[in-house]
């Protein structure tokens, strides 16, 4: 379980998160939704321990992320891979760092995603790069998988493939996935829980099916309404 308790984070004068309380349940896929600048990426970085909160605390299974030994696989929004490496070299780079790397799964995913690991990262298309990032994250058998905008700027067929990969490998009960995106409609059917962020604050959080049941609306519509009410 991941908990945010009264978490605030500033970057200079910009308040990225403002006294945020969130619980990410274990074994669920949570959608972290909101427009650009809502605080989605900051939230994920706080979980990885790449950033520290200014106030409040983030707890990963009850511990500070910096002291935690729990495995987290993180897919950043930026292109973080070295362009001069082949996919195979990048894979061996990642596998050296993390004990939860699963070589069998790597081969399986490579085939499923239609990637050739001799390909050089600097020379492949944007969609193939997105798939490579996903490959390197999901090959690990990590308890937590954090994906920052995994679908942004990707064509529809590749998006479907990415979503299918996530479903295929999701280990119910033991793995928790958090997906941040501003394109909700794409993954409406994929999430168990939703957190709507807007300008550093939580506007709404809850169980996706329960929200549909109670309001008779899609998550996109529910988010629009929540933001309208907030403004």
């Amino acid at each position: 379980m991941i908990e945010f308790k009264g978490v605030s984070k500033n970057f200079g004068r910009t308040r990225a998160l403002d006294a945020v309380d969130i619980t990410f349940a274990t074994g669920k896929i949570t959608g972290l939704f909101g427009p650009n600048g809502a605080g989605k990426s900051t939230s994920l970085k706080l979980i990885t321990g790449l950033n520290r909160p200014d106030r409040g605390e983030v707890l990963l299974d009850g511990r500070n992320p910096m002291d935690s030994k729990v495995d987290i696989a993180y897919l950043p929004e930026i292109d973080h891979l070295y362009p001069w490496m082949t996919i195979r070299q990048a894979a061996s780079f990642v596998s050296d760092f993390y004990g939860d790397w699963d070589g069998e799964r790597y081969k399986d995913l490579l085939g499923f995603l239609g990637l050739d690991d001799e390909m050089k990262i600097g020379k492949i298309s944007k969609g193939q790069r997105a798939k490579t990032k996903l490959l390197l994250c999901t090959t690990r058998r990590s308890r937590y998988l954090l994906l920052d905008e995994p679908l942004s700027g990707i064509d529809i067929l590749t998006r479907e493939q990415i979503i299918q990969t996530l479903i295929r490998d999701f280990r119910e009960g033991e793995q928790s996935i958090i997906i941040s995106t501003h394109e909700i409609s794409e993954i409406e059917g994929l999430v168990d829980e939703v957190v709507f962020l807007d300008r550093g604050r939580v506007r709404l959080q809850g169980d996706a099916e329960q929200l549909r049941e109670e309001r008779g609306m899609s998550l996109v519509e529910i988010m629009k309404e929540a933001f309208r009410d907030a403004n």
Partner: peptide, 13 residues
């Protein structure tokens, strides 16, 4: 879940 691209927990339910 894979075919319908839906959350496995939802299908389980």
């Amino acid at each position: 879940a894979e075919k319908a691209r839906t959350n496995p927990n939802t299908v389980q339910r």
